[in-house]
Amino acid sequence: MPLVTINADEPLPPRLTALAAGLPEGAPLIFMLHGYGFSPRRHAHSPHAHILSLTPRKHRSARSWPRALGFGTGAPDEGLAIAFGWEARGRLHEAYARADEVGVALACAITRLARAARRPVGVIAHSLGARVALAALRALPADAAGAVGRVILLSAAEFRGPALAALDAPGARGTEVFNITTRENDLFDFAMERWLGAPRGSALGHGLGGHGPGPHGQGGGRRNWLDIQIDDPATLTALAGLGHLVQGAPARVSHYSPYLRPGLFGLYRMLLRRPGEMPLPWLAELLPAEQAPRWSRLRAPLDGVISALRHRPVAARTGRTAPPAP
């Protein structure tokens, strides 16, 4: 069975441990976490009928994550996908606080299944699901270090402080984190900072720094963190050179672009299923080290208009003919 549905407030199904233990060598075990606005208790808002389903309901933001990650093929080595649901509706500050608690439940599930499968698990999470994933890394016991191999965060609704604490947690030793960012999400990052309080610092939308060691290096000096800005032309060119052609033009504002733009899930699938073929340090050397400034995508059309006006002929700007050159 390629997909198993579980919820944070329920015990793990007994058969799940057996399924994990029976995975063929090399088959992946991947947890998928939704973000804000979903509720497994309400069918109209259930992630298990939406992005975490093999057959999601028709919706503009509905895309089957498990299918995009290579599940549902019937291949014996396709592995096991875990659709992890949690209550993510209500006021934002309440859901944000709840996500930290849910991370403890996720850590327990990861520890149990990683041990049963005798391999590290992969995690992919969107929005507030990224906070759940990072909270799980902090909650993992020290003897479970290595239980999580790689984490992919999509438009993470979290701040730098908790992310750095997660990277430094004993249970996160050996875990690699890929932080997928885009200037399309700037408005959401700004709103989160305003609504949840500036003292928490800046959102992860601008990552943790450029590549390399040191206080200003990739991941704030952590070598197991990589920021990937998916609306950056140089980044897209580098990914295309690796065979991951991301299609479609970036939007001015979007919170869902990291999983809706065609071509991106091919990258995520490779990162989670075949980590040895795309080492983090190697990928870091190929991608730009810096993130574009906040609001650069929203300002681009305005800057273009201003530039065009500045370079228009005098007659077009004033209605008068320019004086002849001396």
Rank of each mutant, 00 (worst) to 15 (best):
L3K: 07
D9I: 03
T17A: 12
A20W: 04
G22W: 02
F31D: 05
F38N: 12
R41V: 10
A49V: 05
H59D: 15
S61L: 13
A62G: 08
R63G: 07
R63H: 11
L69V: 04
E78Q: 14
G79T: 00
A81E: 03
A83D: 05
R91K: 12
G103H: 08
C108N: 12
C108I: 10
A109D: 09
R112P: 02
A114I: 10
R119Q: 12
V132Q: 04
A133R: 01
A133M: 03
A144D: 05
A145H: 13
V148R: 06
S155R: 05
R160V: 14
A165R: 11
D168G: 10
G171F: 02
F178D: 01
F188P: 01
E193D: 07
E193Y: 02
W195C: 07
W195K: 08
W195A: 15
G201V: 08
H211G: 10
D232S: 11
D232H: 13
A238V: 02
A240C: 04
A240G: 14
R252Q: 15
S257A: 15
L264I: 09
L267Y: 14
M278K: 03
L283Y: 01
L287C: 14
P288T: 06
A292W: 02
V305Q: 14
S307R: 13
P313T: 13
T318W: 06
G319H: 06
P326T: 04
